[in-house]
Design a protein around this nucleic acid. Sequence first.
DNA 1: AAGGTAGATTGATTTTTATCAAGGATGAAT
DNA 2: ATTCATCCTTGATAAAAATCAATCTACCTT
Lengths: 242, 242
Amino acid sequence: MSQRCKQLGSCPFHRKSNGLVDLICPFSASCRNAEFEQYVETRTIANGEPLFRAGDKFKGIYILQAGTFKQILESCAESQIVDFRYPGDVLGISAFCRGRYPYTAQALEQSHVCYINTPSLEVMLPHREIIAAISQRLRHVQLASVMLRQQNAEQRVIHFIFDVALSLGFNLKHKIRLRLPMSRKDIANYLGLVVETVSRVLQRLQTEGLITAHGRTLELLDSQQLMRRLLFKPEPWLFPLE
Amino acid sequence: MSQRCKQLGSCPFHRKSNGLVDLICPFSASCRNAEFEQYVETRTIANGEPLFRAGDKFKGIYILQAGTFKQILESCAESQIVDFRYPGDVLGISAFCRGRYPYTAQALEQSHVCYINTPSLEVMLPHREIIAAISQRLRHVQLASVMLRQQNAEQRVIHFIFDVALSLGFNLKHKIRLRLPMSRKDIANYLGLVVETVSRVLQRLQTEGLITAHGRTLELLDSQQLMRRLLFKPEPWLFPLE
DNA sequence: AAGGTAGATTGATTTTTATCAAGGATGAAT
DNA sequence: ATTCATCCTTGATAAAAATCAATCTACCTT
């Protein structure tokens, strides 16, 4: 497998090192396993459009090449955001066991995905990269789950900010300036809070000089200080910080 | 693969239908895939003892044959319960991608597990049953995550009761009487509440005639009514009720 | 059976977060 | 540039859950 992407350091798939992408990296043909070349098919999804809908028959998985998605649980009085997905993430894998996508995946901006249909997936299935990718995802979701239910409003928001930054490939050791792809309403829904609370927390963190927040533009001024407010001591094998 | 377990209806592994167990069902030799016979090695874990500890090197996975475990995130000021695992569940799989168990798994009663070491696991890896099992687990964790962070105290407790009952193999269509394997403190920790709140919610549900609760003994008198208090309409492909 | 201990319940009070209400900023379309 | 609609912020009040404090209970040991 070619090293071009890794050398460039610009490929979100290799940054996430979820193994799977060494098989089917949609970023650069030169780093794909030749065996799987034929399975790479890219698609563009417009802002607000669904990639798949809750209840749809399983038609394969997607690797997010560029853009952001939110996954929504529809079978609620008011729909609930399950998670956000970023470049390098695999979407749709949790539909594998029951034949239907459990959530709707909706683009938060114009996005590009790499589609792998079921026959192609069958071919890739025996490769350990697939299991490694799901295993990694499971771990990430479990950790987020603990953090989101056992921390207070401020901690949830801080954890969320770190999660976005890391998912977008930033290194927490440096000062970070990023644009949030989602609205405050979406953030609040995801965190199990209301918009007002999210707004107030961000305001307070700003007053304390830990961040700046102008609309969707966010700057992390003191990641160390922010980190200390969280519930947990991040072990490197648990929560990699870069 | 033999149908004995399925016919008996008594095998928790087939009840959970996570595929994986058709390969290595530790319950009955007659339903194991002969190819994997050699990999079944059972262990007994005493009440309160760890199966593995957070940070331990990955040494394989375990299938829980009988008993209950809690998984604990240790790298916190106060340790946080990530989840509870019941007969038929697979433990340790989320260590696969990084070579270390992220949580400590501690027995809540004397328990029996089936150990599958790494060489054995390697042999089984290409089988789709493994992926199906992880995929199923991922879905379960994601759903629980949404429920636990976006519901209020009462809804969390009700969701928890259903989760325990279903995980222990009860059918919600019937009246259920069960013994909770964990303390109120553990329940509260898992749900992100305090013991007093859990106690009060259970008391209120009892007053309203929906359950009875004497210590760890629990009866569900009206599952329909309880279900209606939850945030979501359970779609069969999302949250199977039996 | 008695005593001790951790677990569980109940009540009073404080803290946190949601709700309600009103402005202010932002961005897309004209 | 203006308008409209949505998003975001801010303040006042209400509701939910945590905290503090005091029993009560069940189970384990002796």
